[in-house]
């Protein structure tokens, strides 16, 4: 370095002159760029990138909301149905307390007509279901359905949905609001069975028979028809209608020979059970 002081422009000029690529390096880079440009010109390149559509976002949110609503509704139904099944007709019929009560009851209840073995009418096992609809003391003949539904158990799923504008059912004040057209049919059927059970538990066989008739009108081929007819036998026997109870019992035994409620139905009207058993085995 010379002894003369260096000025700022001189430093800048010297730096600019020295700090740059060599001519050979510039030539190499230029050749590489031209080759790249030539290779690129042979390909199709979009001049502008396609704009992103953000309309999918609200659609995605709507789909998510619909899925959540569907999951919530199905889970509510499942929980409700499970609860109803837990206290449904199967539990009702297999309730040990109820069984003990019906089996140990040898004396008539206060206020009810005497129902002794000696006074039980002879069983008519071969009677058709239409005979079970004989006029009764408590239930009018017009509302008496067949004692047992001869329809098979499986076609319940093929059953058409009940009409909402049906005639009002003779329900009691304890009946929950299940008549809405938006209630699920299976759930409504379960709730009707629950009403029958509640009425039998409260020792009100008349109300139970009314609810059974309501269920038979609305769900003649329902999935719980077997349970309903079993409860009908129990209700008739509890109400003291021994003749109708025995006929209903015989029809049930004939229609559902392998029913899980067979013993429960036999215990409801023990007098006629043996006769019905003999008739079915013969």
């Amino acid at each position: 370095m010379s002894d003369e002081p260096v000025t700022t422009p001189e430093l800048v000029a010297a730096y600019r002159d020295r700090e740059r690529p060599s001519d050979a390096a510039k030539e190499r880079m230029a050749r590489a760029l031209m080759a790249a440009a030539a290779a690129r010109s042979a390909t199709v390149i979009p001049l502008r990138p396609a704009p992103r559509r953000r309309r999918t976002t609200p659609i995605g949110w709507l789909a998510l909301a619909a899925a959540l609503a569907l999951v919530g509704a199905s889970s509510y139904w499942l929980v409700g149905a499970r609860h109803e099944r837990a206290t449904g007709p199967a539990d009702l019929l297999m309730d040990p307390q109820r069984i003990d009560e019906s089996q140990e009851r040898v004396t008539p209840r206060p206020g009810e007509p005497v129902r002794a073995k000696a006074t039980v009418a002879p069983v008519q096992p071969a009677s058709p279901p239409g005979e079970a609809a004989a006029p009764a003391r408590e239930v009018p003949a017009a509302s008496e359905p067949p004692a047992a539904d001869p329809a098979p158990r499986r076609p319940a799923r093929l059953q058409s949905r009940p009409v909402a504008a049906e005639q009002p059912r003779p329900v009691t004040a304890e009946q929950p609001p299940v008549g809405g057209s938006q209630v699920d049919p299976v759930l409504e059927e379960l709730m009707l069975i629950q009403q029958i059970k509640d009425a039998l538990d409260a020792d009100r066989p008349g109300d139970a028979l009314t609810a059974i008739d309501a269920h038979a009108r609305k769900f003649a081929r329902g999935s719980l028809a077997e349970e309903r007819e079993a409860l009908r036998v129990v209700a008739l026997c509890d109400a003291g209608e021994a003749g109708r109870g025995e006929r209903a019992q015989a029809v049930f035994m004939r229609t559902y020979p392998r029913s899980a409620y067979r013993e429960r139905v036999r215990a409801a009207c023990p007098t006629a059970a043996s006769t019905a058993e003999e008739s079915t085995t013969d």
């Binding site: 370095m1 010379s2 260096v6 001189e10 430093l11 800048v12 000029a13 010297a14 730096y15 002159d17 020295r18 700090e19």
Partner: peptide, 18 residues
Amino acid sequence: PDATVRVRQAAALMQSFL
């Protein structure tokens, strides 16, 4: 040459300052 040496030394000074 001396001029080239001077430019190179000045560039080195600028580099050291930077």
